[in-house]
Design a binder for these strands. Sequence first.
DNA 1: AGCGCTATGTACGCTAGCGTGCCGACGCTT
DNA 2: AAGCGTCGGCACGCTAGCGTACATAGCGCT
Lengths: 237, 237
Amino acid sequence: MTSFFHVLNANRLLTELPTVERDGFMAVCENVELSFGEVLFQPTETITHAYFPIDSFISLIVVLDSDNRLEVAMAGREGMLGSSLVLGIEETPLLALVQGAGSALRITAENFQQLLLCSPVLHQRLKRYIYVVMKQLATSAACNHFHRIEGRLARWLLMTQDRAGSDQLNLTHEFLAMMLGVRRAGITLAAIALQARGLIRYQRGTITVLDRLGLIEASCECYNEDCALYAKMLPVL
Amino acid sequence: MTSFFHVLNANRLLTELPTVERDGFMAVCENVELSFGEVLFQPTETITHAYFPIDSFISLIVVLDSDNRLEVAMAGREGMLGSSLVLGIEETPLLALVQGAGSALRITAENFQQLLLCSPVLHQRLKRYIYVVMKQLATSAACNHFHRIEGRLARWLLMTQDRAGSDQLNLTHEFLAMMLGVRRAGITLAAIALQARGLIRYQRGTITVLDRLGLIEASCECYNEDCALYAKMLPVL
DNA sequence: AGCGCTATGTACGCTAGCGTGCCGACGCTT
DNA sequence: AAGCGTCGGCACGCTAGCGTACATAGCGCT
């Protein structure tokens, strides 16, 4: 197995493709480094590229107005950005903000859409991915409405940990407040509660997950359901 | 802003198709009557049919658990049910509840997926529809989180009015409470406020829209944005 | 060592909405 | 005309979370 293949292998949507499809993809993609805070897409902007994160991850955020924004989805190595290209639409409804620096494979919108025409396996897999995202969006709507900050915070930390592949996350309360659409002080209280239960430890912009199972326990059910849905629709082959 | 429904008496996704595609569709679809309260899909159930409402409309509801449910989308003659079939997935994530009785065109999952293979115009239009739904799901998440009951109620009444094609809606506060994921008493207060402003009138299970423009004024911006998005992505040809 | 920026802790009063329960009014049935 | 089930009005205390403000504490920089 070549190291190049290993890199490709790192995005879960691209694993185990037929050789011809993989080669086709590799021929037209490029490796890019994404840095924290980078904005890949602005809402309603035309998409020029699709991204397949390898060890980076990106938050997808609804911007209602300048005061009200809310993260509704996240894409790491299990997903992609620019999925609306799969539907033949060259615009994105959401703000895409790089939340974990790292690398990603990038492909131009045009090449990507060409490629899909002769990559039925990939195409089908990406349609399944869109279905997963739709269900997650719907669940998010209910979760944000009904669940308490503490449970939502726990869920968010778990999702981030999965994508960062590390116990240690660089996050401020301020940033978390923006993601969850709540006050910074609200995050502080929830974080104190989680820390008091020994589930996390944090200091000045770094949060460490100490007890992953306990955190799952503390999170709302939505975390487990998200995982189960992904596993069902996009199993590791 | 005017609503985008009043002109047509057929399903808007099916209008202005090339003759070949329309004939193909008509050959395999059937007309069905949907009655209030009927459940067309249960979450995670296998979909057997796609529906294209004509003068009926259907609520799509996330069921978190027995206490917590929330409407996240609505499909009337501007949309369809079973859009995941367009993605090649034969299951639905949401509860589909008939909210306005009436007729719809129905087509079996198998026929539908066959048909799409030789109906490029329809296929493309339905992919655009999925994009619209995705954006609406994302916006809903933020709207339900940030906006007050009164504004959300106004928005919901407008959306329902558009799809019912009538000023008079048969709705109880109880039902509205379930849709918006709030208390019945919360709806009563919001409804009193809207009535006091002369925007609606209601009485024992019937709500009449008196001042549509005023109601738009009272609703959150999400209503206008939904309309604008649909108009942009799926214009009348 | 001291400065200053930023992250976090905390406290204040306030509001929206919750859960609940009760009552009256409407209107359908008999 | 009476009875009854459903619908809507309302009131109670309660909670989560808001907006705001200010204080402390860690950390990099000079």
